[in-house]
């Protein structure tokens, strides 16, 4: 079933890319921005006579034209990745909706996530839990990513600004700065953070081919630092949905921009109005009483499409 799910998912992904309206702005050209300096000298060169120009957005948000021949893609180094990673994507307020009625505990989100972020099998940026709210109600499955709270306790307690809140709502962790005190893990009421207790899962790979640290993917992972769900911030920058959202075969996840009031289902690629979705289905957030203001909404497990899972072993 799961392999079918993946195939279907991939097909949808192809179609989805074409049919979807401009849900996320492509920012692929940003990489070019760093070449503006070279471009100004380039204007005087003979090649400019070819008169083929392209429009390019500079890093200070000016639209300029430069000769096509001068365009070359720049690989961002760790510093540049960190600078843009800390700012976030302007004008966006990312939000996730999880439909509990549809989760069959396929755990494809977990697998996709662990692969994307190079996690050990025991490390979860997203985990699916079996929940039971009271002894009478039926158990249900609950995917649990980071809530990307608007009032994040983890960010408040961090002594070195290693974990931070971006303007687009995403909470990230900079493992080049993290001192490994794990205060954020103690502070998180949702227990979503994980620690690199030992060498990372892909340590061998990092040794063979060293790579720039991308704070939006938190890869390479680093021993002695905290890691967490990032809403796949690197995918968001490329105009993609987060990995877990795309990996789900069961239409559980919606993801989108609260400013646009639109969320897209990761499986069907159907885009719906966020406020309608939450209103009609009585959407709620986890532990509202703590005042953390999560950016992840849940739709109650009403009219579920699956058999209730076995009773959970709460609190071991």
């Amino acid at each position: 079933m799961s392999s079918d799910g993946i195939k279907k998912n991939e097909l949808d992904k192809q179609q989805g890319k074409n049919s979807r309206r401009d849900f996320m702005r492509k920012l692929g050209l940003l990489g070019v921005a760093a070449t503006t300096g070279a471009a100004t000298t380039g204007f005087k060169s003979e090649e400019s006579s070819s008169s083929e120009y392209v429009k390019v957005l500079t890093s200070d948000n000016k639209l300029v034209e430069i000769p096509k021949s001068q365009v070359k893609e720049v690989k961002l180094d760790t510093d540049a990745l960190q600078t843009r990673g800390r700012i976030g994507i302007e004008g966006k307020r990312w939000v996730m909706v999880i439909d509990l009625a549809k989760c069959r505990n396929a755990r494809e989100c977990v697998k996709g996530c662990q692969e994307h972020h190079h996690l050990h099998p025991y490390q979860y940026h997203i985990n699916t839990l079996v929940m039971q709210d009271n002894p009478q109600s039926a158990p249900y499955n609950m995917p649990k990513p980071c809530m990307h709270c608007d009032n994040p306790p983890c960010v408040s307690v961090c002594p070195v600004d290693a974990t931070f809140k971006r303007q687009d709502g995403v909470v990230l962790i900079d493992n080049e700065r993290c001192i490994g005190c794990r205060f954020c893990m103690a502070a998180c009421p949702y227990s979503v953070r994980v620690f690199n207790w030992e060498e990372p899962f892909q340590a061998q790979l990092y040794k063979e081919e060293p790579m720039e640290y991308d704070v939006e993917m938190n890869v390479p992972q680093k021993k002695g630092t905290v890691s967490k769900c990032l809403f796949s911030a690197d995918c968001l920058r490329d105009g993609e949905l987060p990995t877990c959202v795309r990996a789900c075969p069961n239409e559980v996840f919606y993801f989108g921009d609260q400013n646009e009031d639109a969320v897209t289902n990761g499986t069907t690629r159907e885009t719906v109005v966020l406020s309608d979705l939450l209103e009609k289905n009585a959407g709620y957030r986890l532990m509202e009483e703590l005042g953390t203001k999560p950016r992840v909404y849940y739709l109650p497990p009403k009219d579920r499409v699956f058999e209730a899972p076995e009773k959970p072993d709460n609190h071991h």
């Binding site: 408040s156 307690v157 001192i179 490994g180 205060f183 002695g224």
Partner: peptide, 26 residues
């Protein structure tokens, strides 16, 4: 001894955030 990255201890002074009780404790 409890820190995952003790060699980054100086970060507490370089990047210290006053909101964190760890700064107060130090």
């Amino acid at each position: 001894s409890d820190m995952g990255r003790p060699e980054r201890l100086l970060n507490v002074f370089i990047h210290g955030r006053v909101q964190s009780p760890i700064l107060w404790d130090v």
